[in-house]
Amino acid sequence: MLSLSKPFLHWMVLPTLLVLLAIIGYPVVSTVYLSFFGYNLLDFTPPEYLGLGNFKDMANDRIFWISLKNTLYYTGGTVLVSMLIGTAVALLLENLKGPVWSCVRAFVVSPWAVPFVVVAFLFRFMYMQNGGIVNDILLDLGVITNPVSWLNRADISLGAIIVANIWATTPFFFLLVSSALSGIPDAVLESARVDRAGLWSTIFHIKLPFLRNPLVVGSLLMVISNFNDFAKVWVMTQGGPGYATTTLVVYVYRMAFERFEIGYASALGLIWLLLLLLVSVFYIRLLWNRQND
């Protein structure tokens, strides 16, 4: 009888490891390698070794710092607000049964089914200064007196994109929290009722602790997803006006595929990867500590 502890069976994962090395390891190693070189795709002379030159340039690159700050705002704002809204809506709809509420649930989830590029185009047209529905509604309500150029004012454009992103991301947290809520054992909720726990007490002391792990995992996924979100920003503003909505991924794209500065783009990508690794480690430790409590 073969046992899984047999050493030769361990070798059977080798093909999988080789495939993973080829499709994940090679690009990462290649990016790290290229980040130490001055390498422009238009220049067919061999790449020039710069040591830490690209990283020194990055430290003095105002656009890099702006794009990093914008990325943090974009990711943090989106994840935090959509998590709060998604959780609140899930708690509100939790005990509402019947076909009408099923339809409401489907309606709440529907933005998740819309492709990101379509979301971006929808909001781009909705935000238009001339003929955009957002301005029309706000003008009719008397909230504003003149149409606002939502995506073309440096002070509000990032916020406008974050709103669009929250609209697209909230259903994820709604689904996650709804499924987590349905997993809370009835016995626990019944005990709370027997103990005459009130609504808020039940939410804060019974339900939210059960939601913690799913929310930690979900927010980690969304942090990574939004950190890497290119489509919405590119379609809505292409990083403008000025650099007001330029995020790291947009900046890397411009460097790599408009200026063909692959060396500098690789250095940016390496920092980006390290930041995401830091975030992931933080989240994993959070989960680990929770499990050890």
Binding site: N40, N152, D155, S157, G242, Y243, E258, R259
Partner: peptide, 23 residues
């Protein structure tokens, strides 16, 4: 030339700032 894409990004970012901000 090789710098045109950089010129375009930088100059158009400046033009956008001129049109949309009070800097």
């Amino acid at each position: 030339g090789p710098e045109f894409a950089e010129y375009a990004t930088v100059i158009m970012a400046g033009i956008q700032e001129a049109v949309t901000s009070d800097r």
